[in-house]
């Protein structure tokens, strides 16, 4: 376990160093270029592309979280019950939609640039979060629901104090899935002129410069691994805490 932690710290250190001072890594990438092509992408700074990439993913994932969790809460209340079968079906079918298709179809509505990428990532990111939130909210044990009802909690109190805290770790796993997919999909956004790290990769593909492709891919890959691990660590922390909370709740009821 300790080795894994050390490896992660090394990856993080290398990533930060590369983003801040990519020219320092030029000798490493030089063997991958031909005909004296530049080994490091310099048209736009890697730092600004990384920030823009992370920004797009963060905004899309945050918006997707708010809408997806809100909608999952709605369809699991008595008021929204009629929407439940359809929501399940749509969450299931929607995930078969290729992300590139979502992106390509967003362009005519929104034009080129960051807009269609943001919308495509948002739409695609909704589904894993919604599916997980739905699973978590409908999968709570009836005993917990009854206990909350029996202790005289109102619908709102049950939702905020019991259902959401217990569902939180599963919802987090959905957010993680969505964020990691978005990180990778955002690179395709550069085919429609979004400012993401995909720009570096596509510049490499167009000019036959493997060094560009590799550095763009490595930065996105490292970001994805670190964000994935960060979420996993946070999830296990939360699970431990809600696990404790759920036990407290049981003892207080009995």
């Amino acid at each position: 376990m300790r080795i894994v932690l050390v490896l992660r710290l090394i990856v993080l250190a290398l990533l930060v160093a590369f983003i801040i001072a990519p020219q320092g890594f030029a000798p490493l990438f030089a063997p991958l270029t031909r005909f004296d092509a530049p080994p490091i992408y310099t048209q736009t700074s890697i730092l600004s592309l990384t920030l823009s990439h992370l920004g797009i993913v963060a905004v899309a994932t945050l918006a997707a979280t708010v809408i997806a969790v809100g909608f999952a809460i709605l369809v699991t209340r008595p008021f929204g019950e009629e929407f439940l079968p359809l929501s399940r079906a749509v969450a299931n079918i929607g995930q078969t939609f290729p992300p590139v298709a979502v992106l390509a179809l967003a362009v005519p509505v929104l034009g080129f640039g960051t807009g269609p990428t943001l919308v495509a990532l948002f739409l695609y990111g909704l589904l894993p979060i919604f599916e997980n939130a739905l699973t978590a909210l409908t999968g709570l044990s009836p005993a917990v629901r009854e206990a909350a009802r029996g202790s005289g909690m109102t619908g709102w109190q049950r939702l905020v104090q019991v259902e959401l805290p217990l569902a939180f770790p599963v919802i987090l796993a959905g957010i993680r899935l969505s964020a990691v997919i978005s990180l990778s999909t955002a690179t395709i956004g550069s085919t429609v002129a979004a400012r993401t790290l995909g720009e570096v990769i596509i510049a490499g593909l167009l000019s036959g410069n493997t060094a560009f492709v590799l550095q763009g891919g490595l930065v996105v890959g490292a970001l994805a691994v670190l964000i994935h691990d960060g979420f996993v660590a946070f999830e296990s922390l939360v699970t431990r805490r809600t696990g404790g909370a759920a036990r407290d709740f049981e003892t207080s009821v009995s």
């Binding site: 690179t187 493997t210 890959g221 691994v225």
Partner: peptide, 12 residues
């Protein structure tokens, strides 16, 4: 975790 366009490109 490697983005698809990068992996496609790296294999060329």
């Amino acid at each position: 975790t490697i983005p698809s366009i990068a992996l496609f490109g790296l294999l060329i």
